[in-house]
C-alpha cells in the first residue's frame, strides 16, 4: 500500500471497507478437516470459532469451513465433543 497524505484520508478517518476483504486464511499452518460421519451438527465449533470461519447451512443441514478466514487455531478440534475434527498439516 502506498503512503497517503492527510488530504486523501477519509473525513474523521472513517473505515469504509469491510474486513472480509482481508483473507486471514493464509496465516494457517494446520487445517481443520472434519469427518462428516462422526459430526453430530451440534454447532459448538461454529459458536466457538473466533474468526466466524465455520458457517451453518440450514438448507443442507450441514456446516461448512471457510478456509479463506480460518487461522488454524484448533479450538474447533479441541472442543468437538465427538472428536470429528482433526488438525492436519496439508
Amino acid at each position: 500500500m502506498s503512503e497517503k497524505s492527510w488530504k486523501e484520508i477519509s473525513i474523521g478517518a472513517v473505515c469504509w471497507k469491510p474486513s472480509t476483504a482481508l483473507l486471514t486464511g493464509d496465516w494457517r499452518t494446520y487445517t481443520p478437516v472434519r469427518d462428516p460421519a462422526k459430526c453430530t451438527r451440534c454447532l459448538l465449533c461454529a459458536i466457538y470459532c473466533p474468526d466466524g470461519a465455520i458457517h451453518w447451512k440450514p438448507e443442507r443441514n450441514d456446516i461448512e469451513f471457510d478456509y479463506n478466514y480460518c487461522k488454524g487455531c484448533g479450538i474447533c478440534a479441541n472442543e468437538c465433543p465427538t472428536k470429528a475434527i482433526e488438525m492436519k498439516l496439508l
Partner: peptide, 28 residues
C-alpha cells in the same frame, strides 16, 4: 445453537486477531 449460528455476524471475519483469540469469540 442453530438460531445463534444462523444469525449473521455483526463482528465480521477478516479481523486481525491472533489465532485462538478468546476475546474475538466473546465479541462475536
Amino acid at each position: 445453537s442453530k438460531d445463534i449460528a444462523e444469525k449473521p455476524d455483526l463482528f465480521m471475519s477478516g479481523h486481525r486477531a491472533c489465532a485462538g483469540c478468546g476475546a474475538t469469540t466473546v465479541l462475536r
